[in-house]
Design a protein around this nucleic acid. Structure first.
Length: 132
DNA sequence: CTTCTCACA
DNA sequence: TGTGAGTA
């Protein structure tokens, strides 16, 4: 099938599919016309790529891991134990990002909670400060 | 009409 | 990653 159909079948854009190829996530054959010729199995491959992308994995890592992934009926399974380390470090990276965001949220919440509800509260605060 | 590559107010 | 250009 050509790029348009694969895009439609996977809910992605043609732009993204060309990008995946550029990142070696997909290697479609070429028709004599120069058009990309995707295999039916690429529909599943694209779904896998997207789920891995959604998990935060960088494309270069997906390119390495995808060929080793085994497709059980319901989901993907690492085909070899050597994939464990990179997956764990990715998870650690995400955990760190979550922690940072949690801190950022706490900071913003603190500022929001300290915001006076109306102008009279500001006036009262200013008056109190000047009095002191 | 569909796809391709390349480039970027 | 969107978008438009100019093709095949």
């Amino acid at each position: 099938m050509r790029i348009g159909e694969l895009a439609r079948l996977t809910g992605t854009t043609e732009r993204a599919l060309r990008y995946y190829e550029e990142q070696d996530l997909l290697r479609p054959a070429r028709l004599p016309s120069g058009y990309r010729d995707y295999a039916p199995s690429d529909v599943e491959t694209v779904r896998h790529v997207r789920s891995l992308l959604a998990a935060g994995l960088p494309t270069h890592l997906i390119a390495e891991l995808l060929p080793c992934m085994v497709d059980t009926g319901d989901g993907l399974m690492p085909g070899c134990r050597s994939m464990l380390a990179p997956l764990e470090s990715e998870r650690d990276r995400i955990t760190a990002a979550i922690d940072a965001l949690t801190d950022a949220r706490a900071l913003l919440t603190g500022l929001i909670d300290r915001t006076p509800a109306d102008d009279s509260e500001y006036d009262a605060w200013i008056a109190a400060r000047d009095a002191a």
